[in-house]
Amino acid sequence: MTSTQTLVIYMAILTWLTLLLASLIRVKGWTPSGTLIALGNRDNLPEASPLAGRAERTARNTLENFVLFAAIALVAHAAGATSPGIATGALIFFWARVIYIPVYVAGIAYLRTAIWVVSIVGLGMMVSGILR
């Protein structure tokens, strides 16, 4: 397995954890009543607090970007593309996302956007490596 494929797996785990965290924050899953909501059908979710809203938006953004990353990484693998730019771009994307998640949840607006741009640059490097 290549380092890029390993990062796809790590990113899948990170995405799942981000989705789980957002859900638990929304229902306050660490409380007895929140645990009951989390284990139920979630028909009557409480209103999202600002933190829960940011966590949900972080999770959605992480999922959206993971889809792009996985598609690009899998196309690179299927095409047999081995450019160093692909692996470097994947690393940049992954670590930018690792930093992005807590920054977004914390509500640091402009830094969040700058980090997102860095992750997109990583995706661009991967695409460029494939098209060469």
Score class of each variant (00 low, 15 high):
29 G>F: 11
27 V>N: 02
94 F>S: 03
107 G>L: 05
101 I>L: 07
86 I>V: 08
41 N>G: 09
32 P>M: 10
41 N>C: 07
100 Y>W: 14
70 A>C: 12
49 S>Y: 08
36 L>E: 00
46 P>L: 05
45 L>S: 11
77 H>R: 08
5 Q>F: 15
80 G>D: 05
89 G>Q: 08
60 R>C: 14
82 T>A: 15
68 L>M: 12
20 L>M: 12
1 M>S: 13
80 G>L: 06
125 M>W: 13
25 I>A: 00
36 L>P: 00
20 L>E: 12
59 A>F: 01
110 Y>A: 15
29 G>L: 07
108 I>Q: 14
36 L>Q: 01
31 T>F: 00
86 I>Q: 03
104 Y>I: 09
113 T>H: 06
14 L>I: 07
68 L>H: 11
27 V>L: 07
73 A>Y: 04
18 T>V: 02
123 L>D: 09
7 L>T: 03
51 L>N: 03
126 M>C: 06
101 I>S: 00
119 S>T: 02
2 T>F: 09
2 T>M: 12
36 L>V: 00
99 I>W: 02
44 N>V: 15
83 S>T: 01
127 V>C: 07
72 I>N: 00
94 F>I: 11
124 G>N: 13
29 G>K: 01
53 G>W: 13
11 M>F: 11
106 A>N: 09
131 L>S: 07
36 L>A: 02
21 L>K: 01
81 A>S: 14
